[in-house]
Amino acid sequence: MTLAEAPFQTVLSIQSLAPEGADLLHLGFVPGAKVRLVRTAPLGDPVEVEIAGARLAIRKDALGAVEVVEVTT
């Protein structure tokens, strides 16, 4: 699944990034990184994402470029 469809408050692991997700790379969206969706803004966009120890407000349409799986503990 992509980050756009992933459940909130779950630790996810990034599998791959589509080419249009290149603008997310430097923020820590690289394969293997752990990521968690925290909440959305009141109108559903942007989305607060926790990654590499920071909380970032990311545009929803960019999240579709990030392929993730749930981390089973």
């Binding site: 997700g21 603008d23 997310l24 923020l27 942007p46 607060e48 920071a54 909380r55 970032l56 407000a57 990311i58 545009r59 349409d61 960019a62």
Partner: peptide, 10 residues
């Protein structure tokens, strides 16, 4: 061009 995905860091 393209809109940047990052709005702001909290």
């Amino acid at each position: 061009g393209r809109a940047l995905p990052l709005v702001v860091e909290l």
